[in-house]
């Protein structure tokens, strides 16, 4: 079992509308900079928002396919509003590789299938106030977790020795120290660190992501309509 065991009893539920203790801080940072929290997003004054430091968002893709990041980009022109509201820190979107400051929200794509994923995830927990598991891979393992029913040895044997298309006359197994060490199975994020919110979907739709991120920024309870929560 890698890392610290999260509280399996209660992965936070986005629709429950319950706010983790630290959400208040985010609300303060975001709302004081932008507007009263009831004010619609269109009303945000860019000048006022620029005057004070913006809350920071970090994102990462671990054992995922970048589909959830693509879905985030799918918010179309709303991304202009989003960059007025927030600043991206460590993220593939701006290619910042290490945390340079504390972040309000960490968006996690993908579960953990290597020790590098676990390390990444622990860094996120260390540097972010709120962690959101975005997408099925982060919340349950997703497609990579299809190997969870098979032992690791069987999996590697099939991939590098017995598979019908394998050509490996020296019978080599990948063992370069540069390659992250593969875990015994794929772990959803909340089995490795504490996760504050879960957003299922493959990927969660752009509307779902935008609604969730803005609600977190404004410290509002998040009540997503029926159509925005899907497991596929």
């Amino acid at each position: 079992m890698p890392g610290e065991k999260a509280n399996p009893k209660a992965p936070a539920n986005v629709t429950a509308g319950k706010k983790p203790a630290k959400a208040a801080g985010v609300q303060k940072k975001a709302a004081s900079a932008a507007a009263p929290k009831t004010q619609p997003l269109e009303m945000v004054q860019p000048a006022a928002a620029a005057a004070k430091p913006k809350p920071k968002i970090a994102t990462v893709s671990m054992a995922g396919c970048f589909g959830c990041h693509m879905s985030l980009l799918d918010i179309d022109e709303r991304i202009l509003k989003l960059v007025e509201l927030v600043e991206f820190n460590k993220s593939p979107i701006d290619d910042i590789k290490v945390f340079t400051s504390r972040c309000a929200i960490g968006l996690l794509e993908g579960g953990c299938c290597t020790d590098e994923n676990v390390h990444n995830l622990q860094e996120f927990r260390k540097h972010c106030d709120i962690l959101v598991s975005v997408g099925d891979c982060a919340t349950m393992g997703g497609v990579p977790a299809m190997r969870n029913m098979i032992t690791l040895k069987e999996c590697l044997d099939e991939a590098y020795q017995n598979g019908p298309t394998v050509y490996n006359p020296k019978n080599l197994m990948p063992n370069d120290p540069e390659i992250p060490l593969i875990l015994d199975r794929v772990y959803p994020c909340h089995e490795v660190v504490k996760i504050d919110y879960l957003l299922p979907g493959c990927p969660p739709s752009a509307d779902t992501l935008y609604a969730a991120i803005t609600a977190l920024l404004f410290g509002e309870p998040l009540k997503l309509p029926y159509e925005l929560i899907k497991y596929d």
């Binding site: 598991s133 099925d136 596929d232």
Partner: peptide, 26 residues
């Protein structure tokens, strides 16, 4: 694995999860 199941969208178990507000099993 709802993400690649051909029943997804027409599945009663999945629909029950939606109706009851399940994000991920605890």
């Amino acid at each position: 694995f709802c993400m690649f199941c051909e029943k997804s969208g027409n599945c009663e178990l999945q629909a029950m999860g939606y109706r009851l507000g399940m994000m991920e099993p605890k």
